[in-house]
Write a protein that binds this DNA or RNA. Sequence first.
DNA 1: TATCCGTGGTA
DNA 2: TTACCAAGGAT
Length: 252
Amino acid sequence: MLQQTPVARVLPVYERWLDEWPRPADLAAVPTGAAVRAWGRLGYPRRALRLHAAATAIVERHDGVVPEEYADLVALPGVGDYTAAAVASFAYRRRHVVLDTNVRRVLARTVSGVEFPANAVTRAERDLASGLLPDDGPTAAAWAVATMELGATVCVAASPRCAACPVTELCAWRRAGYPAYDGPPRRGQAYDGTDRQCRGRLLGVLRDSHEPVPHRRLVEAWPGEEQRERCLQWLVADGLVAQVGADAYALP
DNA sequence: TATCCGTGGTA
DNA sequence: TTACCAAGGAT
């Protein structure tokens, strides 16, 4: 849920989710549509599908227990390097480089002396983070939490709260006089009129209904026929939408 | 590796 | 008002 989504928006959904499905087996036992519906407006609804698939895989491969090994975690649907490292570190106190957007920004500033990290994680960046990581698991896990939290609450992207920062004295970016970011522009994300907006609109109609929705309702939600029909079939192919009968659609 | 995958709060 | 951008992942 936290992938590319602010903590404050995740919290209420997360709490309801765990209340309903406290164990992987509980989630794996319900239809995928239930997960998509409970996902609400968190965005990137395919994550709901993948979380459901991960729960199913955990039941099948790991006897219903979230695995401790990075290799097992990263093999789960929707779990990449960051999430595998975060779970192994935070939940199991294993030693892993937890390199999320917050940690990357903290290291870019405090160590490298630049305002923002590069667009993609570089080898040098990973080596830097690895070299700073404490040797033993529990201490490394505390380090991971601390650096991430520092980035999330103090060393934030816009208007960092340097006056409240516990490591201002060793910050290379501060020492250099806070030079502005001079790298390539970080790509914006146009949204109006895009397939993403269209898909979101269509899925929203189905999510807000507890019964199959006639195609007419989708036409009302997105007038552009070519894009609407293409995105609708795309949603079906993704498994986010199921066609019910000849002329109706619903969550799977 | 560049691009695509939603959504909403904020300055 | 419009950008920015938020505990990334898959292809």
